Computed example of a mutant assay.
Amino acid sequence: MRMGRKMEWVGRANHMGGIPRKLVFMAVGAFAKAVATLLNTTSVHNADTLIRLVRSRPPGVPLLTVSNHMSTLDDPVMWGFEGFPLFDTKLARWVLAAEDICFKNALLSYFFRLGKCIPITRGAGIYQEHMNEALDRLSDGAWLHTFPEGKVSQEDGPIRRLKWGTASLIVRAPVTPIVLPIVHHGFEEVMPEKFLGGRRPPFPLFNKNISIVVGEPIEFNLPKMRQTAISMSRNLSLSTAGWHSASPNGMDEGAQRCLYATISEQIQTVMESLRSFSKSFMKSKV
C-alpha cells in the first residue's frame, strides 16, 4: 500500500504565506551563525564554489551536496559560516533527516518540515515514499543535502561505505544534479556523542575549531555507466524483493545495484581525498 508523505503540506512555500518558514529560518539561522562564528572558529576552503552553486545555477538544474556526518549539529551549523546566504528561505537546502529523531511527534514534525527537512525511515529502502519526495525536489531544480554515510560517526577514520539512496537520486532525477562533495571536522568536538554520562551535552560546546572543505562538482558519465552496469549485472542472480523490476532506462535490479554501487564508490573516493586534504587544511589554520 502506498503510504502518504508525513506533513508534506507544511513544507510548501505558500504554507501560511511562508511566514512560519521564515521565522524558523531566522531562529535556526541565528543559532547556526552563533555556534559557527561567535562561539567557535570556522574555516572554509573553497566556499565560493558552494555559494555560487547555491545562488546561481543554470535554470532547472538541481544541486545535490553530500557530506560526512560528524554530529547532530552538522546541519544547520555547517551553513553558518560568514558570507553564506543562511536566511534566504528560497535558496535554502532541503535535507534528508532521520524520521525516528526529527519526526517523533507532531510538534517536531511541524518544526522540521518548516525547516525544509524530508523524513527518511532507516532501513525502509531507497524506493520509500519520502525518497520520491526528495526526487520531486530535485525535479524542481532545488538544492538537496544528504549524509550518504547514513548515520553519525565521530571516529577519526576513513569515509564509510555509502548508502545507495544518494546514488539512486542522481540516476533517477530527470535532470542530472550538480553533485558537490563537502567534508568537515570539528563538529564532533562541538557536540560530542559521549560527553557527560555517555550523553550529548545539553548545549553546543565552544572555543573549538571547525573546518569545512568544499570540493569541486563530481562528473558522472551516466549513459556509459548504465551500459557498464548492465554488462556487469548479466551474470548476477539477485532477489528482487523491494526493488523496481525495471527502471525507466530498462535496467533490472542487478544493473541498478551495480550502477548505484559504482556511483557510491566514486563519491566515497572523492570524499576520502577531501578528508585527507582537510587534515592539512586544519593544520594550516591552527
Rank of each mutant, 00 (worst) to 15 (best):
M78D: 11
A134Y: 12
N68Q: 11
I120C: 07
G123M: 00
T166K: 05
K22Y: 11
R93C: 01
P181D: 04
I118L: 07
L23K: 15
V54P: 00
F111A: 15
G197H: 02
E133G: 01
M3Q: 02
L96D: 04
I101F: 13
S276N: 11
M16G: 10
H145Y: 00
W79G: 06
L135T: 02
M232H: 05
H185F: 11
P76R: 04
A173L: 09
E155G: 08
R52C: 00
H244P: 03
G115Y: 15
K163W: 03
F206W: 08
M1N: 12
T89Q: 03
P204K: 08
F187R: 14
R55Y: 03
Q256C: 04
T269S: 01
L114Q: 13
D140R: 14
A241V: 02
T89H: 08
R199Q: 12
V175K: 10
H244A: 12
I126Q: 11
E82A: 01
H45V: 06
L205K: 12
R172Q: 12
T146L: 03
V24E: 13
F81L: 05
A246F: 14
P20F: 08
E99C: 06
R275V: 07
P204H: 06
T41Q: 14
M3R: 14
M131S: 14
K194R: 15
L107G: 04
G186C: 06
G80T: 14
R55M: 08
F277P: 05
E8R: 13
M251H: 03
N207L: 07
